[in-house]
Design a protein around this nucleic acid. Structure first.
Length: 797
DNA sequence: AATCCGGTTCTTTTT
DNA sequence: GAACCGGATT
């Protein structure tokens, strides 16, 4: 088609209107948002507005389609339309009708919501996407967009095509723990020694195989010469057999089966390739081979694929992520548009330059230099203590100083390489009465009683699930012992049916005479619940389950501390179910179990509580905090001993360091200790090489003062932080609220503290619902503590 | 079937 | 130092 003068004027106006709609973006971000057609690689540095770009791109696709890129006027356009468009540009549309009219005049084949799929790695990212789409384009359109994690998107596809994916309707999902158990069973069943074939090592080897889309047979063919791997291949084979007997899939299978489905069934592939006009993938640097194949398949129709990632933030190689996907994107799509987002909106320039200085030491990256218009901010503090106690006391006293200056606890995060370091920090926080929250550790859904109840629900959904069946069959006690189950398993194996079927018909097998009444009773209970599931709402079904399984009554009879806590947890699971039912359109047992199995503890992170947040550096990815502490920055811990042998591993550690540093918005403090107790031994180490890699001009160093090192009495040898004048008690906090422990202490009073000994209260400042005390301890010096939480360590002298 | 003891192990872990 | 697992013991 010829471009006319009219077309050119129209396209110019249209572009101006659309540009105005996205005026809050910078030029690079706009480029990423406007180029909807064809493959686009967006290299987005830390804090460069990656999520913003993703969301705006979707909004653009839904609102204007390929609007900006289209050079033609719409077919219906006459001079009248052109004039209207010009008017809308001169003055913004006021009424709803005018706005709709403007969108119509500018849009060129806009996508419908379900034609867009945006894939993320975490539920948190997917939820954030959904929420921000909600505000941008309204709930109705937003809910149509496929904003999912890789796993939930795949489950959605698998559920609608379970027959073609050779799955049963009610397939079960095994988590990492279930996986390990099945692996142990498999290893034993093959008569192998667990010492030689560690289930964890074998499990990750199998995961890597699945990441690379290798079936047991293909894996064996590739590794036939290696004795160990040959055995792993047979375990892999056995393991898959057991999964399929239980109608179960592990996390890796969710991706693998979807890829298989799309590869094998042309009509399914065509369906999704037609449906998804636009495919967007977040955190592309962390995709593995299978996920790469999957996204390529989904985008295979129109090749409108946008991937967002940062090769410098790839920290999951050990889980099979391959940086090759992002590095090779241009080879895969030679016509790809590459856009670099290099302006950072998060950190001070000091922090950013320091992080740049570190990551610069890595080879094999896409060249990219982040810059910022943000102010320089303060220098990065590097504190070197002689012991871990000094280190953590430094962190605690720094936080208290910030708090006394009006910064809430919740603006602080402590990040560490390794979970064991959290103990020390935790102790220091307890001593100093600092409220804190640890992310990771024991998850709610990992608690035994929760897993028990979920296992029950899984069985109702899919009685073939032998692993879960074994978990609950004798819990609460039904006098069905391991031996009886072993026999039942044997029979099931011989008759090629499920254990549940055998137990149901226990009367027919003389071997099972021992517990046959209990067995049939149990199966009858499950079958009744299965029938109820058809018509009962989910939360009522759960009540029935608690009742019929006597799980609750067994706990009530025990009635000790632990059982009471368990009852609470079991009830909390109920509120989870109720919550799920209210916010889901068509609640189902299926849907609930699926959601739960893809849930992680980061999803429970509640940013509203005023507490310091502690987590591993890995867990911090994608988050940001005003004040960040990186602790345990020592050779051997970070970078870890294990990574020191290979350059590749050191580079991954360095990327992790880069990720950790760039979490900080305003202030970054790095700490280490010369000597620490770890794994029951005292170890001495040098400060991390990564500290050395930070250009010195961005750093202010604090080291223990050697001249007071001999002060045995106190044990604390670092230079105390500068005395700070506490803010005056301001009028708005003086309103008398019931603060029992907070008001217990008066200025001038003497107290004793478990850790610090005798001291006198110098000042008491009400703060939030608590009170900040400044106490002069004998020998130890002046400390600031929060009254409420420190009171358990303190009493009046 | 439950409990105790002793030996072993100890990165990170979006789903 | 602690947590977890497996085998042996009651």
């Amino acid at each position: 088609m010829e471009r006319t003068q009219f077309d050119i004027r129209y396209a110019t106006l249209r572009r101006a209107v659309i540009e105005r709609d996205f005026a809050h973006l910078n030029d690079k971000q706009k480029e990423a948002v406007f180029n909807t057609e064809g493959p686009v690689l967006i290299l987005a540095g830390a804090g460069s507005g990656k999520t913003t770009v993703l969301i705006n791109k979707i909004v653009n696709i839904l609102r204007y389609g390929s609007g900006v890129q289209c050079e033609q006027a719409p077919f219906f356009a006459k001079d009248e339309e052109l004039r209207r468009l010009a008017r809308y540009l001169a003055e913004k549309p006021q009424t709803e009708e005018e706005l709709t009219d403007m969108y119509r005049l500018c849009s060129v084949s806009p996508a419908r919501p379900w034609e867009v799929i945006a894939i993320t790695f975490t539920n948190k990212a997917a939820n954030e996407l959904r929420e921000r789409l909600n505000t941008a384009i309204g709930a109705e359109a937003a809910s149509g967009v496929w904003a999912h994690t890789f796993h939930s998107a795949c489950l959605r596809i698998l559920r609608s095509n379970f027959d073609k994916a050779s799955l049963s309707r009610n397939f079960t999902i095994y988590d990492e723990d279930d996986k390990r158990r099945v692996l142990t069973e498999s290893i034993r069943a093959l008569g192998l020694d667990e010492k030689h074939y560690d289930p964890r090592a074998v499990g990750s080897e199998i995961s890597r195989a699945k990441d690379n889309l290798l079936s047991p047979r293909a894996y064996e063919a590739e590794n036939g010469n290696d004795h160990y791997r040959k055995t792993v291949a047979s375990i892999y084979h056995e393991y898959q057999g057991r999964l399929s007997m239980s109608d179960a899939m592990d996390f890796d299978d969710i991706i693998v089966k979807t890829v298989e489905l799309l590869k094998k069934h042309e009509e399914v592939r065509n369906h999704y390739q037609n449906q998804f006009r636009y495919v967007l993938v977040d955190e592309y640097q962390d995709t593995n081979y299978a996920q790469y194949v999957l996204s390529s398949l989904l985008a295979g129709g129109r090749r409108n694929i946008s991937v967002v990632g940062d090769d410098d933030q790839s920290i999951y190689k050990f889980r099979g992520a391959t940086i090759q996907n992002i590095l090779g994107f241009e080879d895969q799509y030679p016509d790809a548009l590459v856009i670099r987002l290099e302006q950072n909106y998060r950190s001070t320039s000091t922090i950013l330059n320091a992080a740049n200085g570190v990551i610069k030491n890595n080879c094999g990256r896409k060249s990219k230099t982040l810059w910022t218009e943000n102010p320089a901010g303060g220098k990065i503090t590097v504190y070197r203590g002689s012991t871990q106690e000094e280190e953590t006391e430094f962190i605690a006293s720094n936080i208290l100083r910030d708090v006394s200056e009006g910064v809430p606890f919740s603006k602080h995060a402590v990040l560490y390489r390794n979970n064991v370091l959290s103990n020390n920090v935790e102790q220091a926080f307890k001593r100093n009465g600092i409220p804190y929250r640890i992310l990771s550790g024991l998850r709610f859904f990992d608690r035994a009683e929760i897993k028990d109840m979920l296992a029950n629900l899984w069985i109702i959904q899919n009685p073939a699930d032998t692993l879960r069946l074994k978990r609950i069959i004798n819990n609460p006690k039904r006098n069905i012992g391991d031996r009886s189950i072993e026999k039942a398993e044997q029979i099931a194996h011989n008759e090629k049916t499920t254990v549940f079927e055998i137990l149901k018909n226990a009367n027919e097998y003389p071997e099972l005479s021992r517990g046959r009444e209990q067995m049939t009773a149990f199966c009858k209970m499950i079958e009744e619940l299965r029938q109820m599931e058809e018509f009962l709402p989910l939360d009522e079904l759960y009540d029935e389950l608690l009742e019929k399984s006597s799980y609750m009554s067994a706990l009530k009879i025990k009635n000790d501390m632990e059982s009471r806590a368990r009852i609470e947890n079991v009830l909390e699971l109920k509120s989870n179910i109720t919550d799920y039912c209210t916010r889901t359109e068509k609640p189902s047992l299926n849907g609930f179990l699926e959601e739960i199995s893809l849930f992680t503890d980061i999803d429970r992170y509640d940013a509203s509580a005023d507490a310091v947040i502690m987590m591993t550096m890995h867990a911090a990815k994608g988050l940001e905090f005003d004040h960040v502490f990186l602790c345990g920055m020592e050779e051997g811990l970070f970078p870890s001993f294990r990574s020191m042998e290979s350059d590749d591993d050191i580079e991954e550690e360095r990327r992790l360091c880069y990720v950790a540093m760039t979490r900080a918005k305003k202030n970054l403090r790095i700490t280490c200790a010369d000597r620490r107790m770890i794994f029951g031994q005292t170890r001495y180490s040098r400060p991390s090489r990564f500290i050395e890699e930070i250009p010195q001009e961005f750093i202010e160093k604090f080291e223990p003062q050697t001249n007071i090192t001999e002060n045995k009495e106190s044990g604390y040898r670092y230079k105390p932080t500068e005395p700070v004048t506490l803010p005056k008690i301001s009028s708005f906090v003086t309103k008398k609220e019931e603060q029992p422990s907070a008001n217990l202490y008066a200025v001038g009073e003497m107290i004793t503290h478990k850790a610090f000994g005798r001291g006198m209260i110098l000042a008491a400042t009400p703060m939030g619902g608590d009170c900040l005390l400044e106490i002069a301890f004998d020998g130890v010096g002046t400390k600031r503590l929060m009254a409420k939480s420190a009171s358990q360590y303190m009493k009046k002298a």
